[in-house]
Simulated assay, not measured.
Amino acid sequence: MHIHGLHHVAIIASDYPRSRDFYHRILGLPIMAENWREERQSWKLDLALPGGAQIELFSFPSPPPRPTRPEACGLRHLALACADAAAARSYLQASGVACEALRVDEYTGAHFFFCADPDGLPIEFYQRA
């Protein structure tokens, strides 16, 4: 087996229009496809990430909430690489997104910070060296 890389991360939103706006307008991720799936009463939105990976954003009727943050079993957080963590943080704050303080990775020296998507999913912005 040979893994070529990450293909996608799937996220279920409690409020599809709000999450669509966050990932598309605020984070600037281009829409590749958006489909209404009648049999599931669900939207599926494919958003492009640089490098070829994707975020799949879904809506489902009455999805259960995330159990706890951030140490529940399963996906802990989504980490997105950026060129300048401080600039990304300033942009998000100016867009009305609450962000945690800028930190420094004790092992790599890289700057990073966390915010949350509209459903509280932790998103890390990690500055590439």
Rank of each mutant, 00 (worst) to 15 (best):
H2N: 14
I3V: 15
L6N: 08
L6T: 09
H8V: 07
H8F: 08
A10P: 05
A10N: 12
A10G: 15
P17L: 07
S19W: 06
S19T: 12
D21L: 13
Y23P: 01
Y23M: 10
H24T: 15
R25W: 06
I26T: 15
G28P: 13
M32L: 14
E34F: 10
E38P: 00
R40I: 08
S42Q: 15
S42T: 13
W43N: 01
K44H: 11
A48R: 09
L49V: 04
Q54Y: 05
E56W: 05
F58E: 09
S59N: 01
F60M: 11
P63W: 02
P63T: 03
P63K: 01
P67F: 02
R69K: 02
C73P: 13
H77P: 05
L78R: 08
A79N: 08
L80K: 03
A81N: 09
C82T: 14
C82D: 07
C82G: 03
A83W: 11
D84S: 09
D84A: 13
A85D: 04
A86I: 00
A87K: 15
Y91E: 03
Y91V: 01
A94F: 07
S95D: 10
A98T: 10
C99H: 06
V104W: 00
D105V: 05
E106S: 05
Y107M: 08
Y107D: 13
T108L: 14
H111W: 07
F114S: 04
F114C: 03
A116Q: 15
D117Q: 10
D119F: 09
L121S: 03
F125D: 03
Q127T: 04
